[in-house]
Design a protein around this nucleic acid. Structure first.
Lengths: 351, 351
DNA sequence: ACAGTTTGCTAAATTGATTTAGTAGTTTTA
DNA sequence: TAAAACTACTAAATCAATTTAGCAAACTGT
């Protein structure tokens, strides 16, 4: 006869194992396991026993040890999310949406910020691998091609986003960076600006190259003189604002500027504020990425909005498809989602 | 004689177990385990064998299976971080700093957004518990007192931040909410504003109650008429902006407003923009929480800045102390860190 | 020279699940 | 009525580590 258990308040819930409940009911662990995993019918367990086990499990509040489960099955139901910086509004928003979708499908998220640091990213990939995460969502820095293809060779699904790596074949969700800046620069030209600069972070990531390229093609097409400033990334905003300030001071001939990211944009606005320049009369402004700061600025800043929801949805869909075997691990789908140029006062409405 | 291994490129790294390396070297798993865990000396393993094992392990790139390790030891080296919304700049920044510190100490972070939803939070706590996370950092919604004290009764370290729960005894890091709004409201009064409203989210969390209380005490002290608007939270900003717009339209007598959070503040600014009000001449503004949006706004918005680094450091220090047994699981330290009122144009400099 | 200690190592149990390969007993088929 | 098939279950292996208990051999002291 099974020992008497009480449905304990959670405060004193003892850790029960599958062996405990098998013993209590005088049956084998195997049966309990089959029943709990919904294989009762398939394994021809009688309805009577199923009921007995399920009601008992319910009563004592048994919860399987997921570590043991993962060890045996090799699945951890965890997805690694590696972004440049979780405190950047763009990545934070993406993270939030991915988190929601992942949880809906029974996956947890474990994240890290890479700082675009190749060595750190490699380390992190290793760490996540050690922890047997089931899939990876990565906004990769340069130089991690080998590590990512190694993941794929070992049957671990990977989806990249925000940027891709040229030598790697995998699913990726990106926006049309080149067209976006081409289009934005074109708007400034159309509005009569002649000296348009492009200010961005100094790095060779593909999405940043494309953004620069779009700008360059637009100015070339309009017969304007290109001028690009590349500032080094820093975790201290002042160290980003200062070089932009210097650049703008040194180039008083400029009448418009396109910022390559939200972060550069925000720091750029600080620099412009310090210089006491009037937007858009002294200097027209358009920034990549759209967020609160740009909407609320006076005048509001024209910005290239990434469709964050779409990106997150596409990313998680691609990954879930791989995890569920719908698509192959080696699948190489490149999904390009469209951006939207939110035109506001800062780009000088047809002056 | 041990089989020959090559230091394979990571792309084809086979999963080696501790048994594999023991077999290859013709020794026992026990020795390997002791050596790898730095217990060689303590367990009197000869230097010769230690060298043999370490060099071999190095050569073949063996990495222990952390799941198995966790299963056996009961430690997962993972910390759960539960915040209201990871896409909120305040929580995103905290998350970033906590992530850094945690990684430095060998812990990974797994996070979730609670949306201040009690049921969701309870679920998440259960899930994290199933996954055997070692510690919890929580910005708790109301109603999870029992779950948290259950964690503690089961020897799981918990540190709360941003808000605390009255009936729970545990470490907590908070700011002096009441004083902060009292102080901010006082500044507006000092600057001559007579009709100061307080706009906040409708919820009974302790930190929000304190913020309101600080405002109420300040207006009472100055003999002014209190006016509080509470808007319901929504994931759609328009549904926050609209009621604030309505409130401000309905109370044209107001000459100043204090916003209870960064999010309410940002939406409030949108409402003010729509109303075409001039800050600070038509309406002076101070918001809780400081971030880009407020600094870059024209005029820049006076804001109550939380010392994010300090908060993150205190939180992680408290948790690590518990994890390392330096302090008791049941430790109840309440750490109150000071805020700073960043005075800018929006609060009407002594008009 | 013999007990006692130290050294250097290992067999086997343990963690808590899943899963393979069966085993009795009953029912069906030929 | 014996062989075949099915039903309802289970013993034991497995995942990959840690850890307890203990065993020979070498060394030390008297």
């Amino acid at each position: 006869m099974p020992e008497t258990f009480y449905n304990q308040p959670s405060s004193v819930k003892k850790k029960l194992s599958i062996a405990d409940i098998a013993e209590a009911l005088g049956i084998s662990k195997t049966s309990v396991s089959f029943i709990l995993n919904g294989q009762a019918e398939e394994k021809r367990i009688s309805k009577k026993l199923v009921d007995k086990v399920t009601s008992y499990v319910e009563q004592v509040g048994y919860k399987p040890n997921l570590l043991a489960k993962s060890l045996r099955t090799g699945k951890s139901n965890t997805i690694a999310l590696m972004v440049e910086d979780i405190s950047n509004p763009f990545f934070a928003s993406i993270a939030r949406l991915i988190e929601d979708r992942a949880y809906q499908h029974g996956y947890r998220i474990t994240y890290c910020s890479t700082d675009n640091d190749t060595a750190k990213t490699k380390d992190m990939i290793d760490i996540f691998r050690d922890r047997h995460v089931d899939g990876y969502i990565i906004a990769p820095p340069e130089g991690v091609e080998e590590d990512i293809s190694s993941l794929q060779k070992n049957d671990l699904p990977v989806v990249l986003f925000d940027r891709y790596l040229q030598s790697i074949e995998t699913d990726v969700v990106v926006i049309d960076n080149k067209f976006s800046t081409y289009n934005a620069t074109g708007l400034l030209a159309k509005n009569g600006y002649k000296q348009i600069a492009f200010v961005t972070f100094a790095n060779e990531q593909i999405q940043m190259r494309d953004r620069k390229q779009g700008y360059l093609e637009a100015v070339a097409e309009k017969g304007l003189k290109p001028l690009v400033a590349e500032v080094n990334f820093s975790r201290n905003d002042d160290e980003i604002t200062a070089p932009i300030f210097d650049f703008l001071s040194a180039h008083t001939e400029l009448d418009a500027v396109v910022f390559g990211t939200n972060h550069v944009g925000a720091c750029g606005l600080k620099a412009i504020q310090k210089l006491g320049l009037n937007i858009p009369d002294d200097l027209a402004v358009i920034s990549f990425d759209d967020y609160d700061v740009f909407q609320l600025h006076s005048p509001p800043i024209t910005a290239i909005a990434q469709p964050i929801e779409q990106i997150a949805n596409q990313v998680i869909t691609l990954l879930l498809n791989k995890l569920n075997g719908v698509t192959d691990i080696g699948s190489k789908q490149e999904i390009v989602v469209p951006t939207r140029l939110n035109v506001r006062g800062s780009s000088g409405a047809g002056r």
